[in-house]
Design a protein around this nucleic acid. Structure first.
Length: 268
DNA sequence: ATGGTAGCTGGGCTA
């Protein structure tokens, strides 16, 4: 059995609805993790997406943020809370489990990590605190020793190679050393960047700003990531960044990033 | 130095 999973910051699901529905009809991912849906649960276009064959798990918020997981398979063990103690005030997280044949399962975390700009600020501190909570969650999930995938808009530029000109980003929350340090801490728990693993040597940006003709100049950054536990990493066979969607009419400023997995029998 | 774009909303904030 194979399955594919995609992450896409759509920057407003309602503003992107037609483009979005066309894209899922053509590309047909099994699981699609969305960020910045920018609507309350009641305003989410459930019926049109369900008609395409997807179950919808939505953690919405009026105006800002908001995440969703769409899946052709019914998912289990859904939670919308990252921080059990403080009950996050911003909708940025969904955890779900995909049950596979032979009693196997995969834990999926769809995340919209805080932007954190400007630096320094309360928003930057919030970003770092949120990352600490994510690290705590990742530790728990890794200890379960089943395949585990964290994917979404991380708002982290991991290295100098992941941005068109890093010298312009030194004081940006996406490239500050404090942010990168926390990201490395997360990866060093034993998570592999699917892009790094599958696509060594290439630079695949995932976001181009709307301003200043960033797309035309290829002034992009790579901030949408798919992180894999060791056992998930051993199942990946396909990876792609759908840059061409940035060239569509009224596009999101982010493009979809996808991975394909082959469930290996010896994993059971 | 400033303003450049987009979404949500009906201001100004967020990115």
């Amino acid at each position: 059995m194979n399955f594919s999973i995609t992450t896409w910051n759509v920057n407003g699901i309602r503003a992107r609805k037609d483009l979005f529905l066309d894209w899922i009809k053509v590309n047909s991912p099994d699981i699609l993790c969305l960020q910045e849906i920018k609507c309350a649960n009641d305003d989410f276009p459930f019926s049109e997406i369900e008609e395409c064959g997807y179950n919808c798990y939505v953690n919405g918020q009026k105006s800002f943020n908001g995440v969703a997981i769409l899946s052709k398979y019914e998912l289990t063990k859904i939670t919308y809370i990252l921080d059990e103690k403080n009950q996050d005030e911003q909708a940025r997280f969904i955890e779900a489990t995909l049950e596979l044949p032979n009693n196997m399962s995969v834990i999926i975390n769809c995340i919209y990590l805080p932007n954190g700009n400007p630096y320094p600020s309360e928003k930057f501190d919030y970003k770092l605190r949120w990352m600490e909570q994510l690290i705590k969650k990742a530790k728990e999930n890794i200890s379960k020793e089943i395949p585990y995938i964290i994917l979404g808009d991380f708002n982290i530029i991991p290295t100098e190679n992941d941005v068109y000109d890093f010298t312009k980003w030194t004081d940006d929350a996406l490239f500050r050393i404090e942010s990168k340090k926390k990201y490395r801490e997360l990866c060093n728990l034993g998570l592999y960047d699917a892009h790094e693993f599958m696509n060594k040597g290439n630079v695949d940006f995932t976001h181009w700003d709307y301003q200043g003709g960033a797309w035309e100049k290829n002034h992009g950054i790579r901030i949408d990531h798919i992180l894999l536990s060791a056992s998930a990493c051993s199942m990946i066979y396909k990876f792609s960044t759908h840059s061409q969607t940035r060239d569509l009419e009224k596009p999101s400023d982010h493009v979809p990033v996808s991975a394909g997995f082959e469930v290996i029998k010896s994993m059971q």
